[in-house]
Write a protein that binds this DNA or RNA. Sequence first.
DNA 1: GAAAAAATGGATTGTCAACTCCAGAAAATG
DNA 2: CATTTTCTGGAGTTGACAATCCATTTTTTC
Lengths: 202, 202
Amino acid sequence: MTQTKETIAKLTPKGERTRQRIVEGAAALIHEHGVANTTVDDVRSAAGVSSSQLYHYFRDKDELVRAVIAQQAYLVVGAQERHQFDTLEGLRNWREFVVRSVRRQRGRGGCPLGSLGSELADTDSGARGDVSLSFDRWEAAVRDGLRAMKARGALKVTTNPDDLALATLAALQGGLLLAKIHRSVKPVETALDAMIALIELS
Amino acid sequence: MTQTKETIAKLTPKGERTRQRIVEGAAALIHEHGVANTTVDDVRSAAGVSSSQLYHYFRDKDELVRAVIAQQAYLVVGAQERHQFDTLEGLRNWREFVVRSVRRQRGRGGCPLGSLGSELADTDSGARGDVSLSFDRWEAAVRDGLRAMKARGALKVTTNPDDLALATLAALQGGLLLAKIHRSVKPVETALDAMIALIELS
DNA sequence: GAAAAAATGGATTGTCAACTCCAGAAAATG
DNA sequence: CATTTTCTGGAGTTGACAATCCATTTTTTC
């Protein structure tokens, strides 16, 4: 997201790889244990680098966390944008995709972006902004699909596709949160099924 | 939730008040900054007690956090149980109630229980269990209302009120999370409106 | 291929936060 | 009213973790 050109400009290919290894290790650890329960040393050891390397690529832990947010945004939003939200079938495929990935971890970790947002929103305003922008892009992907459905006449003239998109994203996030808390896939399945049913009726 | 009788049994009225003051202070701080960003010393000073008092009432920070979970569950679920989920009007009133309280803090903090769950679920399995049980009770309140609607014939025979209740809770939680991230009330409004619309059509 | 820049290793430091200890005041108990 | 228990104050200890330092190696650049 908001990363200075300066930092990146000086990176050699080797440095680039090392930096990436650090970010990916950090992203995995943070997704699993949260920011506060992931120490710089954990990241250091997971990435197999020395302490000075870590601080060579990131000014401090906050900057590392920001890089992780950017990484998760790239992955999550990228994965979503590869789905189609302009047909009921596309929506159902997307639902299956999400449910499968939740099942894979029995809900643990929740949404990488949502959890990060929840933990940082009231603490690190820059991080909050980054997460907020990522969610905007995510929402936009769904919204474009539903707008297309409406344009095609697959939704009633009275329904607002933008609202429907926001509600769908909310349902997903809530489902993921409850899945994480209950260690069950069911909340995600039920929440998405409900939203798809609503879209079908709209 | 899971608090030993022993701890409480020996409390004098004065001790009870002190303990409560600590829990309430901790709850407020944790709601605002999260568990990790709230130090025992912050709580100590907010409650106006000495360090030894804090550790007189709670074995360690974890135990304090558990007490906060119990407190938030008591407040949140209690507030929800005071609403009616067995009529559309009741649901709409509830929607207004929730939106007002989110507006009051411009989304900050999110759901006291949800945020706590998000932060602790993958870290403290006891805490996760407590939050999970609280959500069960919350869900039950909504479910009973929707079941009553169905019994009355206000829902189609084919609709499953239990699923609708779970989806409603998910929509609310997701709405609250997005509200916290975007610092806007809109996600909560939109998510709840969507679910109420679905219930109306079911 | 020499000089400059970037990358790496690992020991070290300083801070902060959780938790302990002991001594004394207030309150309950019989 | 004596003694036992609970409650309170605050200084002190410990450990963990973020961050720094300096020396060395590798890579880039001209």
